[in-house]
Amino acid sequence: MTQSRVLFTKKITNNQKNSINIALDCYDFISIEMLDFHFPTTTPASHFVFTSKNAVDAVLSQYEINTTQSIYAVGKSTKAKLLEYAAFKNIQVPYNQYNAEGLIELFEQNNSNNFRYFCGKKRLPKLEDYFKTNQKKHQVIEVYDTILSPPSNLDTKNYQWLCFCSPSSIESFLTKYELLPHQDILCIGNTTAKVLNSHKNRIHVAKKATIDSMLNYLEEHYKN
């Protein structure tokens, strides 16, 4: 079998793979471990914050949340995951930036306070720094961990494009493989791209922080 020239460091759906006329090799470079955690019931929070679908699964697979609860979701896919569990009526998503900066912009617009932030053990400190600097009442609850699990024995040197969906996927890749000068790197967003600031590769960022946007970018820029 001829090897694809594009490596996706995350398994995506067949519908997504078939949406573009480019052959993709897709492997998971990270795995998720759900953590035991305590869900507070006696100390209400005005706003719940979810920055990933993994956090949604970790919480809502174990606990019910009132459908009128105010919820901030980092992006449309996280919102969609929430709605798989219940018909939540008050979910807000950033307008353009599907990242911490976009969430903070929403917090400021709404003058929000009293947050319960469900997150992974490996995370950037942006939101917590904002809460502390602005003296926002908040509670951080770690609900999952990200495990680096790069597949073995991949011949990565022949890939022309490498696609990364998180800083952790880059970290995982670099534990076993190296980025070569001829390779183009496509990142899901600026936060992921910043991890590669010290590398000399051509770094590309999808227009929106979604898998579909990454695929659209590939279709526009990939050359055989």
Rank of each mutant, 00 (worst) to 15 (best):
Y95V: 06
K79Q: 02
A87S: 15
A80M: 03
I71C: 02
K89Y: 00
A100I: 03
N90W: 03
V93D: 02
T78D: 00
L82C: 11
E105T: 14
K122Y: 08
K132T: 13
T68Q: 05
A87H: 12
C119K: 02
Y130Q: 04
Y95Q: 12
Q97S: 10
F107I: 15
I104A: 00
N113M: 11
N113Y: 08
E84V: 08
C119V: 06
L103V: 07
N110E: 14
V74N: 03
T133K: 15
L106Q: 14
L106D: 13
E108N: 15
P94Q: 12
K89G: 02
K122F: 12
N113S: 12
V74M: 02
A100T: 01
Q97C: 09
A86L: 04
C119M: 07
A86H: 03
Y130M: 06
A80W: 02
N90D: 04
N90Q: 10
N110V: 06
T67S: 00
K89W: 00
L103D: 02
N99L: 12
S77F: 00
Y85R: 07
Q92F: 05
R123E: 12
K126T: 13
N96F: 09
L127G: 04
F131Y: 12
F131G: 08
D129V: 08
I91L: 10
Y98R: 01
Q109S: 13
G102F: 07
P94Y: 11
V74I: 11
Q69P: 07
K122I: 08
L103S: 02
E84Q: 13
F115P: 11
L124P: 08
V93I: 11
K79G: 04
K122V: 00
I71Q: 03
P125S: 14
K76F: 08
F131H: 01
F107G: 00
L83S: 03
Y85M: 12
G75M: 04
N96I: 10
D129L: 14
Y117C: 09
E101L: 06
N96S: 12
V93R: 09
E128M: 09
G102Y: 05
K76V: 11
F88N: 01
R123H: 14
Q109C: 12
K126R: 04
L83M: 14
P94D: 12
F107M: 14
T78H: 01
Y98E: 15
G75A: 02
S77D: 02
E105D: 15
A80Y: 06
L82D: 00
K132P: 01
Q109T: 11
F131K: 03
F115M: 09
K126G: 08
L83A: 09
N99R: 10
K89I: 04
S112K: 08
Q97T: 10
S70I: 08
R116K: 15
A73G: 05
Y130P: 12
Q92K: 08
T133R: 15
N111E: 14
Q109W: 08
R116F: 07
K81N: 06
F118I: 07
Y117M: 06
A100E: 04
P94S: 13
E128N: 04
L124K: 05
N96G: 08
P125C: 13
S77Q: 07
Q92A: 07
L106T: 13
Y130K: 03
T133H: 15
F88E: 04
R123A: 14
A100G: 09
